[in-house]
Design a protein around this nucleic acid. Sequence first.
DNA 1: ATACAGACAGACACACTGTCTGTATGCATT
DNA 2: AATGCATACAGACAGTGTGTCTGTCTGTAT
Lengths: 134, 134
Amino acid sequence: MKLDQITDGELSILQVLWEEGEATTRKLTTALYEEVTDSKMATVQKLTERLEAKGCVERDRKKRAHRFRPLVSHEQFLHSRLQALADRLCDGTLMPLITTLLQAKGISRSQRKQLRKLTSDLWPTRDTDTKTSK
Amino acid sequence: MKLDQITDGELSILQVLWEEGEATTRKLTTALYEEVTDSKMATVQKLTERLEAKGCVERDRKKRAHRFRPLVSHEQFLHSRLQALADRLCDGTLMPLITTLLQAKGISRSQRKQLRKLTSDLWPTRDTDTKTSK
DNA sequence: ATACAGACAGACACACTGTCTGTATGCATT
DNA sequence: AATGCATACAGACAGTGTGTCTGTCTGTAT
């Protein structure tokens, strides 16, 4: 599954599939283009064909109009992209990404709370504040 | 400063500049290629020229051999890339990136500790565990 | 039987990007 | 001053990737 070679157009296809769960060529075309023409349909077919070749999509050929389903989740894809970033910029380490993100502005109070809960759940060690209810 | 249009080759130049602080064309070429030829020098010149056009590098023309310095920090660049990821995959929100990274494997005990310290420093609210010494 | 919708193969144009060639010019050494 | 070298600079180029389009074939329904 070649996640790093996913093209921008292919990604758009995947995003529709993530939202819809599965879709036909027509449904994809409708979602992605203003007007559905033969050539737009062909474009979508080419993109799904390439996605299938890359192992990111499966095709159900039972019916005339094939149904496509994603073989990669949104989370998997995001993780892959983050890892690629880390590989290129941080010797493969994820920590710099995390610290950069935490230092970024725009983390609201409720989001901080959410993060604290997440970390407590993930790493239930003794020195983590487990008695949040005081 | 067009950080999103930085090419892979241009990024390699930037990385040397981040390490060295500043460099001449020759120094850059030596760092990036096994053997330094005229054409490789020209390649590096073209890349720095494009980087300058994109506002990511400044050039000191005082001496014959120009000296280049980065106008973007490694951190800035990383943040820009992360934001671009968020824009494309998460409606511009950074939180999904953070949660994905925290859930990723390979976060060691010491790194967790480091993260807890970072969050405490960043968000010194009353409900943050300030008395780590129990 | 006819028409339509979709699959499929192939070609194509366009843009990007790293590379290379050729030329001009500043600087140092003699 | 003359020579030679290192560098800057402009321009061209080829390879590649990518979205798009055309044309053809085939299954399905009316």
